[in-house]
Write a protein that binds this DNA or RNA. Structure first.
Ligand SMILES: [Mn+2]
Ligand SMILES: [Mn+2]
Ligand SMILES: [Zn+2]
Ligand SMILES: [Zn+2]
Lengths: 143, 143
DNA sequence: CTCTTGTTGCAAACGATTTGCATTTGCATT
DNA sequence: AATGCAAATGCAAATCGTTTGCAACAAGAG
C-alpha cells in the first residue's frame, strides 16, 4: 500500500514530465494500475475507477489506456477470445500462461526462448520488433 | 494445380464422412483453401469465392470458416491488429513471423521452443492446451 | 484570474463477426 | 424421378469491443 502510493507518485511525475495533464480520471486510473497485480480489461478498470470517481466514463478509460500505451507506461495484451487486458510496463519482459478455465494469467520468463526467437528471426532475415508468446493451459489434475 | 485438385477432393471426402453436406459455397471455399499458400482473412476468401460463385455471401464464409475450424480442417490465427486469418490444418505445427511492413506471414518451427514451453507449463503445474507464438518483425536492412 | 488548449462525457459510429428468419438446397427416402 | 425434411443460405439486423465527433469543461502557463 505504502509502496504502491509511492509508485503511483512516480508514475504521475514521469507522465507530467512527458507533458501529460494530470486530470481526475487519469489519477484514478493510474492509482488502479499501480495497485493491481493482475491484468484487468477496460471494463474492469472502468468499474474500479467508478468506485474512486463516479463521473468517469468508459470512453475516458479507453482513451487513457491508449495514451498510456503510447507513452510506454502500460502494455496491452490481446489474449485469445476476450477483450484487451492491461498491465503496467515497469517490470522486466515476460510472457503469459492463461488458465483457460479461470482466465487467470500467470507470468513467466525464459531467456532461452527469447534467444531462440532472435536466432530464428535472424536466420529468416528479420529483426524482431515485438513478439507474443502465450500458453493456454489447464491446471494439471492432481494425482 | 493437379496436386491441389487432388488435395481438395481429399478434403471434401473427409468432411462428407464427418457428416458435412457439400454445398456450392463450401466447395468454393474448400477449393480456395486447397489452392492458397498464404493466410487469407474472411474478406479475402469472400472475394476469391465470389469469383467462383457470385452468389456466395460473406455470412456463409464466416459460417463455413467456423465449421471447418470446429471440424479441425483449418486453423484460425488472430494476428495483432487485423482480422482473423486462416490456413488449412493439414501440415505440421508451426508458428509465425509477421512482417509488420507488408503483413506477410513466414512460417517457422522450433522443437526446442516447443519443448521449453512444455517444461515451463509443467513447472507451473499446467498442461498446455494450445499456444500462440508470433514474432513481429521487419526485414533486416541489407548491409 | 484569464486564456488557451487539452480533456471529458455522451451518443453515435465503427469494423469484425454473429445471428434471426424466411427461403432454398442437399440428399436420404420412396 | 418425385418427395420430404433437416440443414444451409442470403440478407438485414444485432452484437461486442473500441473509437470518434462534438459541445461543455477544466488544467495549468502566464
Ligand atoms: Mn504480465
Ligand atoms: Mn501458417
Ligand atoms: Zn517473450
Ligand atoms: Zn508452436
Amino acid at each position: 500500500m505504502v509502496d504502491s502510493a509511492e509508485k503511483q507518485r512516480g508514475y504521475e511525475a514521469q507522465l507530467r514530465d512527458a507533458g501529460v495533464r494530470m486530470t481526475r480520471p487519469r489519477r484514478a486510473i493510474l492509482k488502479i494500475l499501480a495497485e493491481t497485480a493482475d491484468h484487468p480489461d477496460a471494463m474492469e478498470i472502468f468499474r474500479r475507477a467508478v468506485a474512486l470517481d463516479d463521473s468517469i466514463s468508459l470512453s475516458t478509460v479507453y482513451r487513457t489506456m491508449k495514451l498510456l500505451e503510447d507513452k510506454g507506461a502500460i502494455q496491452r495484451h490481446a489474449f485469445a477470445g476476450g477483450p484487451s487486458r492491461f498491465e503496467q510496463a515497469d517490470g522486466a519482459h515476460h510472457d503469459h500462461l492463461i488458465d483457460i478455465d479461470t482466465g487467470n494469467v500467470i507470468e513467466f520468463q525464459s531467456d532461452r526462448i527469447e534467444e531462440l526467437q532472435n536466432e530464428i528471426a535472424k536466420s529468416l532475415g528479420y529483426d524482431i520488433v515485438h513478439h507474443r508468446l502465450e500458453l493456454y493451459g489447464r491446471k494439471r489434475r492432481k494425482r
